[in-house]
Design a protein around this nucleic acid. Sequence first.
DNA 1: GCAAGGTC
Length: 846
Amino acid sequence: MKTVLMVAEKPSLAQSIAKILSRGSLSSHKGLNGACSVHEYTGTFAGQPVRFKMTSVCGHVMTLDFLGKYNKWDKVDPAELFSQAPTEKKEANPKLNMVKFLQVEGRGCDYIVLWLDCDKEGENICFEVLDAVLPVMNKAHGGEKTVFRARFSSITDTDICNAMACLGEPDHNEALSVDARQELDLRIGCAFTRFQTKYFQGKYGDLDSSLISFGPCQTPTLGFCVERHDKIQSFKPETYWVLQAKVNTDKDRSLLLDWDRVRVFDREIAQMFLNMTKLEKEAQVEATSRKEKAKQRPLALNTVEMLRVASSSLGMGPQHAMQTAERLYTQGYISYPRTETTHYPENFDLKGSLRQQANHPYWADTVKRLLAEGINRPRKGHDAGDHPPITPMKSATEAELGGDAWRLYEYITRHFIATVSHDCKYLQSTISFRIGPELFTCSGKTVLSPGFTEVMPWQSVPLEESLPTCQRGDAFPVGEVKMLEKQTNPPDYLTEAELITLMEKHGIGTDASIPVHINNICQRNYVTVESGRRLKPTNLGIVLVHGYYKIDAELVLPTIRSAVEKQLNLIAQGKADYRQVLGHTLDVFKRKFHYFVDSIAGKPLSRCGKCHRFMKYIQAKPSRLHCSHCDETYTLPQNGTIKLYKELRCPLDDFELVLWSSGSRGKSYPLCPYCYNHPPFRDMKKGMGCNECTHPSCQHSLSMLGIGQCVECESGVLVLDPTSGPKWKVACNKCNVVAHCFENAHRVRVSADTCSVCEAALLDVDFNKAKSPLPGDETQHMGCVFCDPVFQELVELKHAASCHPMHRGGPGRRQGRGRGRARRPPGKPNPRRPKDKMSALAAYFV
DNA sequence: GCAAGGTC
C-alpha cells in the first residue's frame, strides 16, 4: 500500500485536519522531536487504497542568516552585508530537529500533500518542507505527479474536504516573494543595526543601550511614538471661553446646559455673548427630541482587538497577553489565539460554545436567558481565511486559572457572549433652549435594554438623570449663566492600544509580530511604558528618530514597508522577477545606507593641524569637520560644496585648506577650517575664508590675491579665484559679484605693482601660445584689469570704457580703491567709489 | 550581539 505524507503548519492544525479527513478514526503518536504528532489512517487517494500520515511543522523550518564569518562584527564592514556577504538557510529551531523529523516520517512515502497555511509564508514553508522531504521519498514512476497543495480558507469539514478533493500545486512565485522579503529584512536590518550600534557605542554612553537596532517594522513603530512626543512638545495651549447655563426645572432641581457654539477663542466675543444672555430671566424651549439609538454588539474577537483590550482595559502588555493566550490555548481553554478573522464560520457551533458557559458562576444568568430566548445572529465580520475568531473552548473558574490567565479568559468569554447578544438600546433625549439670542442644549440617555452591555459592563451606557418632560414653547427660569475660561490641552503619549491600531492601519507587522515589535522598542530602551500603558520615548529613541528624519525620513516613515511590500507582491503575482526586485531594492537601501553613514559619521577629508590625522566631513547640516582624535568640531559654510584643496596647509596653524564652492557657475574660495572658526587677526571675524584673510604673505590670502574694491558693495574686495582657470574668475569676498575674465590663460598672478590710475593690483597673465589673444606672438601681459586697454577687451569692459576715468581724458580720481593690500589699513572701511563708473561696470558682472 | 516571519 502506498503512503501519502501530509504536512500542516502547526501541530494543532494537523490534528484537526486529520480528524476531519479520517472521520475520527485515526491513530496518533508523537514524533521524534516531541513537539509534532503523526496521525495515521487509511483511505483512498488517486483511486487506490493508501495509508495517510498527517503531521506538521512548527512554522518556518528554515531561517536566513549570513555565513558564519560574516557574523563577526569587528571583521566585517556593515556595507558588505548589502551584496558581498553570502547568506545561507539554517534550521530555524535546531532543538526541534525539524529536517530530521520530516525525513524520518517522509522516507518511503509516495505522495506529499501540503496543508500549510494559505498565505505567502505558508507557501514558502511548502518549499522548505519539500527541500527536506523530496530526497527521501520514493521516486515517481513515469512522470506521475507526487506533490500536491491543499487550499482551504477555514478549518471546517466542508472546506477541508473540498480542499482534499481539488488539490493543486504549491505556488513558487509566492514562496519567492517571501525569500526576497527575508533577504531584504536581513541585509538591511543587520547593516543598519551593526553600523548604528558600533557608531553610537561610547558616543552616547548615558543613553544606556548596548544594541541600537534598526528594522523595517520596529523603526516605524518607534517613529509613531516619537511623532506623538513631538506633537506634545510643540503644542501651544490656547485659551478659550465657554458659556454654561443652568436652568431650574423644579424647586430643587436644575439642569446644566451646553452652549451650542461650544467655545470661542476670543474673550471679548465670549463676554459679549455672556452680556446678551446674562440679563435673561427665562430659557425658552425651542425643540425637544427623543431618538432610539443602539450601541452595536462587538464583532467576533481577533488577535489585535484582544491585544488592544488587554492593554487598555486589563493593563497587560501585548507580549504578555499573547503568552497568556497561548497558554490558555494549549490548555484547551480558548481557541487558537492568532487570527485576523472577525467572522464566525457558517457551521460554527455558537450554541454549543454558549452552553458550556451556562453554569458559570459569573454569567450563568445571562447565558441561560440567551439560550432560552434565542441567541442573536453575530454581526458580519471579516473573514481573513486563517482561523476562526478567538472563543472559549470550555468553562473555567477564577480559582482554576488565577491571575492574568483568568482575567484574559474572562474577557474572551464575555466578548464571545456579547457577540451573540443583542445590541444595547437606549433613548437619547435632547432639549434645545434659547436664552436671549443664544442656543443651549441638554441631552440625556436612558437605557431601554442593556443587551450585550450586561455581560460587558464596562461598555454600558452611563446612568444619567432623566430629562424633564417639556415641549416647545415652555419656559424655565434661568439659574445662572457663567463664562468659563479654559485651555486646550496637549495630546497625551500614545497608548499601546493606539499604537497597535496605527501599526495595523499601516501594515506594520502581522497579528503575530505586532507584540514582538512593541516589545523590541521597549527592550532596546527606545520607549518606556508609563502609567495607563502609554509609551513615552526615551532620549535615545528621540535622538534616533530625529536623526533619521534629518537625514532620510523614509528610514522611519511607515510608507517604506508598504512600498517594499508592493514590489514583493509583484513577485508573488509573477509580474516581476525575483532577482531584479531584490537587486534593485538592495541597491536603493545600499545608497540610503552610505548616505546615512556619510551624514552622521562623515568621511575623511582633510588633516587636522594639531594631530595631523584626517578629520571627517559631515555633510548633514550643520555641515562641519570633526577631528575624532582631538574631539573638536569645525563648522563650515552651510551651502555649497566642500573639497580638499590640493593638500595645501595654512601657514598659521598647519590645518589643510578646503575649497568651498557654490557651484560651477558661482564662486569659490579656499578656507582654513581652524581660522574659519578662530579668526587669526583682529580685523577678521568668524566665518571668513582665505579670501578675507589679512595674512601679509600667505599665497592664498586676500593680501596676495586681492585686486581692487568691489564694483557693487561697500566693503568688498575683488579677489582672484586661484582655482578657476582656465576660465578665470574674480569674485568679491563680501557679496555675490563674480567677474569672468581671461579665457585660455594658463596662469594668472596678482602682481605687487598697482595701477597708476586706479590703484588696483596689476595682473600678470600667461596665455597659451596657440590661443593667445594678445597682439603679435605675445603670450604674456601685465596690466590693470580695469584700465589696461589690452585687458579691457578680455574682461569685456568695452562699454564701461567710456565711463572710465582714463577715457574721459582727465586724470583718474585717486579714490584709493583699496586692494586690501598694505594700502588700506586694517579695520578701516573702504572709501566710497565713484558712482557713475561703477554702475556701468556692474552691468558686466554676474 | 543584528531583521521579520512562522510557531512551541
